[in-house]
Design a protein around this nucleic acid. Structure first.
Length: 478
RNA sequence: CGGGGUGUAGCGUAGCUUGGCUAGCGCGCCUGAUUUGGGAUCAGGAGGUCGCAGGUUCAAAUCCUGUCACCCCGACCA
């Protein structure tokens, strides 16, 4: 079968209408449902299982780097939110306010957390006195609320699930090291678990987090050539510490301000998985985050011995992978389509003809390839194939990303490239926000990041042609 | 917040322009039989405050007014 052949009708081709394709996949793969309130999505069991796998691996990485989980309140009094000026200005337009408790109007408005810097800061001010109390390496898993104007499942929702790390350190260097360390944790996670290659770099001042001294980001590229900010890590310096008066006594009995960081990743990652690996037949899940890695489809299951064998295989193979058996009375063809839409990496077909020959058929979701395997070799073959699929997805995503990455040395080239071949554009920049604004005005592209790995595309700024300071990744973003 | 669109059974829709018989169809769902290697077939069955509130009319899914919600595209943001 041709690799690109569409296996399932009822999912719009991504080439025809990418947003519709995305919505179709989310819906047909049973990831979410809409609730009655705009922007508030219901994450269904299959979607939530993916999130749980993401959480589990990330949480392990956080703990390996000595972080502890905590839980902060959902509510923040307005006065607390306002302590850091840039921060409140950045978030005020999109916070949800609680004005009443029961029927009683509150003296002070309370906001539903859009992020928890202020809460962590207040707490840190209380618990940090000595250099012996540092560093504080905290993380919390929770949801936050941002009153977004337009919403889309996973990519932008009013409430979303995430983790937010918040740390406090004795020195500026320690804080900077932590910021970069966690960015690397994110990048490694994306590559190893989600099979998504990312560009690591620093955000420009314009794109920086409200209240941060420096914001670092990992940027990934979707099938349609649009960029997705997939995780951020911020160095706050001692700005919040001054606003919240977080001081400690150092070894020399001198009062010092702490240096802080925060970093976060969200359920948006599921949107990234969909848009990086998905195809016209639906979702394609990297085995590492597939709630079900192998689906067993019995063929002619009413026939003698088929179901028994399928069940025995499920039992045996359940020890080496996440496996399910669909013994419902739907037709085999229906099941094929169903699990392709759901992106399950491997399908194991077992029918009467196979049983006669002591074999089964394995079908790969990523390539469509069907492989006949002896029943005795499944325990070796399945893990090997899952690994191969995981590697292949990363390789394909990397190739696609690279083939959609262009360079430009002047605005005509820049604009033409983005219009004709959407993707990342690498171009030099003078460092002046006026040029950044002009580029956005003209091309709808924003600076994605100043990558750590710099290249010398040309000497002059793509926009004003003055002397260039940085090579920047630009793109239209979600 | 601007522009566009849509609300009729669980989902997708026809009907609306030009008001009129029991609101039609497909998918899904339930029962039974035959099926099962790429979304099976046949037979029977259940399921509707036509988003909501007013108004016009002998008569409203259809016309008018208001309202609510959702979707898409922008601007803002993870």
């Amino acid at each position: 079968m041709a690799k690109d052949k569409k296996l399932v009708e009822s999912i719009t081709d991504m080439e025809l209408d990418f947003p519709q394709w995305y919505t179709d996949v989310v819906k047909k793969a049973d990831l979410t449902d809409y609730s009655t309130l705009k922007g508030c999505m219901i994450i269904r069991p299959y979607g939530y299982a993916i999130w749980e796998l993401i959480q589990k691996d990330l949480d392990r990485r956080f703990k390996e780097t000595n972080h502890e989980n905590v839980y902060m309140p959902l509510f923040i009094p307005e006065s607390l939110l306002q302590k850091e000026k840039d921060h409140v200005e950045g978030f005020a337009p999109e916070v949800a306010w609680v004005t009443h408790g029961g029927e009683t109007k509150l003296q002070e408005r309370i906001c539903v957390r859009p992020t928890s810097e202020t809460l962590f800061c207040e707490h840190y001010a209380n618990i940090i006195q000595s250099y012996r109390d540092l560093p504080k390496l905290y993380n919390q898993w929770c949801s936050v609320v941002r009153w977004e104007k337009t919403t889309r499942p996973f990519l932008r929702t009013t409430e979303f699930l995430w983790q937010e790390g918040h740390t406090a350190h004795a020195t500026a260097k320690e804080a900077e090291d932590e910021t970069i360390r966690m960015l690397n944790v994110y990048a490694d996670f994306c590559r190893e678990i989600l099979a998504i290659p990312v560009i690591k770099g620093e955000k420009t001042a314009k794109e920086r987090f409200a209240g941060a001294k420096a914001t670092y980001t990992i940027e990934s590229l979707m099938h349609d050539g649009k960029a997705l900010q997939s995780g951020t890590s911020h160095n706050f310096g001692d700005g919040f510490a001054h606003a919240f008066d977080i001081q400690y006594t150092d070894k020399d009995n001198q009062l010092q301000y702490v240096h802080q960081t925060s970093w976060g990743m969200t359920t948006r990652l599921i949107g990234a998985i969909i848009m990086v690996h998905g195809d016209n037949s639906g979702l394609v899940l990297p085995p590492m985050v597939a709630p079900t890695q192998v689906i067993i489809i019995p063929i002619a299951q009413h026939k003698e011995g088929v179901l028994e064998k399928a069940e025995a295989l499920r039992e045996k193979l359940g020890k080496i992978c996440r496996i399910k058996l669909d013994d419902s009375d739907k037709s085999a063809g229906w099941k094929f389509s169903e699990y392709e839409m759901k992106g399950i990496p491997l399908r194991l077909e077992v029918g009467p003809k196979d049983l006669e020959k002591n074999q089964a058929v394995l079908a790969r979701r990523d390539t469509g390839e069907k492989i006949v395997v002896s029943l005795d070799e499944l325990e070796e073959k399945i893990p090997a194939l899952l690994k191969e699929i995981q590697d292949n997805l990363l390789e394909k995503a990397t190739e696609r990303r690279d083939s959609k990455t262009y360079t430009a040395t002047n605005m005509e080239e820049f604009e033409q490239t983005l219009n004709e071949t959407p993707g990342f554009v690498k171009a030099m920049w003078c460092g002046d926000q006026a040029c950044e604004d002009a580029i956005k005005e003209k091309t709808a592209a924003t600076s994605r990041c100043i990558p750590f790995e710099q290249e010398e595309i040309s000497d002059t700024c793509v926009c004003c042609q003055k002397k260039a300071k940085h090579m920047v990744y630009w793109g239209r973003a979600y």
